[in-house]
Design a protein around this nucleic acid. Structure first.
Length: 556
RNA sequence: GGGCCCGUAGCCUAGCUGGAAGGGCACCGGCCUUCUAAGCCGGAGACCCCGGGUUCGAAUCCCGGCGGGCCCGCCA
């Protein structure tokens, strides 16, 4: 019997007991504070003219008679499963390595994430995107979906043209990494754009040539973007969050896809015209005030960013069943309009995971004001602090191994800290919090994984064997935690809430550490059983860390 | 001005399809002669932004405020 089946059985027993008592049905809490199931006795108190506490007690007695472990507490009747008969099957399942992993769903999912404009190195504000996107991709893949990831490269439009102009006319900075060097070109071009009319004209001319599909202009702009992107990709690779494919905006224009979108949209009954500029009239779609006109061409007839985005999504849906975009909250309106336009073309609309911005204690991050924390610097700093820790704790470790581990710990800590906060909640970046290596942080889960490995490495016996008759209380809590993994994963994947993962890792690591304290494994009479428990934890913890994009080390 | 999101201990954060306020940092006290102390145990700390409403019951749902973020271009 599985824990789920045992729970269903317990629920049936509760229902039977209620019938026998002559009470109406009562609400249940399936993730209660105590035990595995709680019956909430408040609703019938008035009807039965008894305080909830007394009702809970009465019900508990009735359940105990039926052979369940039930306890009345403050108007709740808590029921705990007997994990003894459940443990062997659960451990066998977990030993297969597929515990929690979903069966293939047959869904082709395309996740677009990051897609940062190639204007400079990633800063911490932008870093939220690849981390969430990458973990979402790993999670859905684990869930059984067929997942591809894509980075939409913006090589059309003003910013891209500005960079190209900068690369052509200004000298890069002397930073070693190409994106950090090239951002200097972009800064100067931006300044020129504001102060020098000739520069402005050149940049806009370049942009327009691109939009017309001029291959030479496109090549120049795309080439500049590509150079910048090379540096940015190094950062993503370091983060362990590089996308599978890069889709260039320019190919939508040169390949004719945008033209087709414009033709189709013009046919819409909602299409309006303002001095030659075409728009969709969205008055009836509940869009607020001024945004009711969704322009898809300029009066010159050329496309706009949003038009190209429509074309991009049409392309996406020719390759997938479900498209998911990871976007900053500043794209909310834009995304809504895109969805409406796609609906107007009888196409699917993407699902979107929005995340709020990361700010600094002084306010927003601003490249121009020089108030930024670069991802690369953050990664360096995190790695260095981890290395300092390791040098102190593990002087015995080979330096090469130490450095590799330190980098993994630094990156892991960063990813974990980003992931543990709900996407839609903004947060303020603080070095101290971001580099925390204690408590609810990646190193704790990593360390717990390493502990499992250490025990398994040192043990002479094999995992397995019958569970002992008496189970330590912490062992039970441990089994309970372990058994919740599949449901946690399914919920996180279904609701696309990656922030549900870190608390699970933390809870499991805590359960392991409690067990570690109370239960000697090696040399104990129940060694085989306990080794199986430890091995199962090693696997599950390893899986969760894998989804978070955090290395699960064998020693630490 | 309008739209969307957020508001939980000194700080960060979970819980938000209503049911017992979780965790972490920082703070105080204890634990390295047994499998790694990035750990464990104990303590203290919360008008769940404010005001109403619905309900046996509201951090959670509804209405109205306040505070913060984001957005409102024939830019991207």
């Amino acid at each position: 019997m599985t824990p789920e089946e045992a729970l269903v059985e317990a629920e049936q027993a509760v229902a039977a007991a209620l019938r026998k008592l002559g009470w109406p049905e009562l609400p249940l809490d399936r993730s209660p504070q105590h035990g595995d199931l709680a019956v909430i006795c408040f609703p019938v108190a008035k009807q039965l003219r008894k305080p909830p506490e007394a009702l809970a007690k009465e019900l508990a007695s009735a359940l105990v008679v039926r052979g369940l472990r039930a306890n009345a507490l403050k108007g709740y009747c808590n029921v705990a499963l007997d994990w003894r008969p459940l443990a062997p099957e659960l451990l066998v399942q977990m030993a297969t390595g597929d515990f929690g992993r979903g069966a293939p769903t047959g869904h082709r999912v395309l996740i677009e994430h990051t897609s940062a404009n190639a204007t400079g190195p990633f800063h911490m504000g932008r870093a939220r995107n690849p981390v969430i996107g990458d973990t979402l991709a790993r999670l859905l893949r684990y869930n059984g979906d067929e997942v591809a990831t894509e980075y939409y490269v913006n090589d059309m439009g003003r910013q891209a043209a500005t960079l190209a102009y900068g690369v052509r006319h200004f000298a890069p900075g002397d930073a070693e990494k190409v994106d950090h060097a090239l951002v200097e070109c972009y800064r100067q071009a931006n300044a020129a754009l504001e102060s020098d009319p000739a520069a402005k004209e050149a940049i806009y001319a370049l942009m327009e040539r691109c939009e017309q599909g001029d291959t030479e202009a496109v090549a120049e702009v795309a080439g500049a973007a590509e150079k910048m992107l090379a540096g940015m990709r190094v950062s993503l690779a370091r983060l362990g969050a590089e996308t599978g494919a890069f889709f260039h905006e320019s190919q939508l224009v040169t390949g004719g896809a945008v033209g087709k979108v414009i033709e189709a949209l013009v046919e819409s009954s909602l299409c309006g015209d303002e001095e030659g500029a075409k728009y969709l009239d969205l008055t009836d779609y509940g869009i607020a005030g001024r945004n009711q006109k969704f322009f898809f061409t300029r009066k010159s007839g050329l496309s706009l960013y949003t038009t190209r985005d429509v074309a991009y999504h049409l392309s996406k849906f020719s390759r997938c069943d479900i498209a998911i975009n990871v976007l900053g909250e500043d794209h909310k309106l834009q995304s809504q309009l895109l969805a409406l336009a796609l609906t107007e073309l009888d196409a699917n609309a993407p699902d979107v995971v929005f995340y709020a911005f990361v700010s600094l204690p002084g306010g927003k991050m601003s490249t121009r004001a020089g108030r930024v924390v670069y991802l690369d610097d953050m990664l360096d700093e995190a790695g260095q602090r981890a290395l300092a820790e390791l040098e102190q704790r593990r002087p015995d470790m080979a330096p090469v191994q130490r450095e590799k581990l330190a980098a993994a710990i630094g990156t892991g800590a960063l990813r974990y800290n980003i992931l543990r906060v709900q996407a839609e909640k903004g947060f303020t970046f603080r070095w101290h919090d971001a580099l925390s290596f204690e408590g609810d942080a990646a190193p704790f889960a990593m360390y717990s994984h390493a502990r499992c490995c250490a025990i398994l490495r040192r043990a002479k016996g094999e995992p397995g064997g019958d569970p002992p008759g008496d189970r330590h209380a912490t062992e039970e809590e441990f089994l309970r935690q372990l058994s919740h993994w599949p449901a946690t994963m399914v919920r996180a994947a279904g609701e696309r809430k990656v922030h549900l993962l870190p608390p699970y890792a933390h809870g499991l690591a805590r359960a392991l550490n409690g067990f570690y304290r109370d239960c000697q494994v090696i040399g104990a009479p129940e060694e085989g059983f306990r080794l199986a428990l430890v091995d199962a934890t090693r696997r599950v913890l390893g899986d969760v860390l894998g989804l978070l994009g955090v290395v699960a080390p064998e020693e630490m």
